[in-house]
Design a binder for these strands. Structure first.
Lengths: 215, 215
DNA sequence: TTAACATTGTTATTTTTTTAACAATATTTT
DNA sequence: AAAATATTGTTAAAAAAATAACAATGTTAA
């Protein structure tokens, strides 16, 4: 297998988006796509698309564009793990359930296999195919099921404690959707996403009457 | 009022985060904060914090740090609108409800004042203080209530249609949480957020055994 | 069959963002 | 009172990302 020299982080993000856009095209029985078409779908410039494609070592055909299936396959080789990775959702509130529905049937390589909550009414039930365990079982299940990734959708004031449990349980990556930033050791990958920041940013640009698109 | 020379986009994002962190500190009766403390809370470097603070024209006191109240006030002056902005949530599914709970009582300047859904069981009811209207009322309510910002939490296959309605209704900013990218005219601010991309990015770095933190 | 065109692939340039370096200085310690 | 220290504020440098420029070339049109 060819070693892929480290891709820019932004390119990784876009690869995921390219794939989704390409899958939509495939669903419409499209076979080839031009850089400007893909760019248009994702609010990017054609140059950026071509450059990313260059970076992953793929080539299209002149005047015909890129072969959609091939590109999907190649992106998969780069960003997916062969075995597939299991994901747990911590906190089965509205947001946790939203994440599960979101994923339902969408991806094969990433699958949500467990949810955790503190509420006894939710525990030991199955939500959209995903079993919900009591949060006390977190460490046990994460280890036994070998789950490397967790999505935190608990209330902000529980974020720190849950993070600690996750780290102790050996989790490798955390996506933190709570409003509270958390800390993890250096060998754990952490990504924070804050809905309020997103909205405040929009508010700022709306206030400024700014015209640009920003993804 | 001093004209603020255009701030970097990333700084705007961080200002929102600074404020939230500062509010937490304020809640703990802290009065001053050092750049390295703020940095530590948000996975940033102290230099970056100081630089941002410099850019907004604030000054701390040597060996004492920054006055928390003052800084919160200043950030508000920069990123908030004086009158406050109204926000609508389109789609009262799990994600829409999550957004509403998230905001409940948190912000004063941004307030979710309306939700829309197609489901008759949800229409004309109030969820967490927010009235839900039928989606056919979208244009009417958005105009009459003067709502400039919308959060889209509908299923992906409705995203395009809803976006069109929003634009026609004169919306100024859209936060798109559906998995489907949409298009808006140049005078509308659009921000797309894709949960799957976030997760796939984590998966990639977990796969790589990458050690860094990424916000 | 030649010219015009559309598209890719790649290098170069510019812009944006982050990081480093370090001067200035109030506070604490000796 | 002098030295050491911790911290801010700012300029400079580096790194990352986006954009532009343009050569190459197969395709279509004249």
């Amino acid at each position: 297998m060819t070693i892929m020299p480290k891709l820019p982080e932004k390119t990784i993000e876009r690869l995921s988006q390219y794939r989704r856009a390409l899958l939509i095209c495939l669903g419409k029985n499209k076979q080839y796509i031009f850089s400007h078409e893909l760019a248009g779908m994702l609010h990017l410039t054609p140059v950026q698309v071509r450059r990313d494609i260059m970076l992953i070592g793929y080539s299209g055909t002149l005047r015909q564009g890129y072969e959609i299936r091939e590109m999907i396959a190649l992106i998969g080789k780069i960003i997916d793990s062969e075995e597939g990775l299991k994901v747990a959702v911590i906190g089965l509130g509205n947001l946790g359930r939203a994440m599960i529905s979101y994923f339902n049937g969408k991806r094969t390589k990433l699958s949500i296999v467990a949810a955790f909550d503190i509420n006894q009414e939710k525990v030991n039930r199955v939500y959209a195919g995903v079993p919900c365990y009591h949060i006390d079982m977190l460490s046990k299940i994460i280890r036994s099921e070998n789950i490397p990734i967790a999505i935190m959708t608990v209330p902000g004031d529980e974020a720190a404690k849950v993070t600690e449990s996750l780290v102790l349980a050996g989790i490798k990556g955390i996506l933190n959707y709570t409003p509270t930033p958390v800390n993890v050791p250096a060998n754990t990958y952490l990504q924070e996403y804050d809905m309020i920041t997103s909205l405040e940013k929009i508010a700022y640009f709306v206030k400024q009457g700014n015209r640009e698109e920003h993804i």
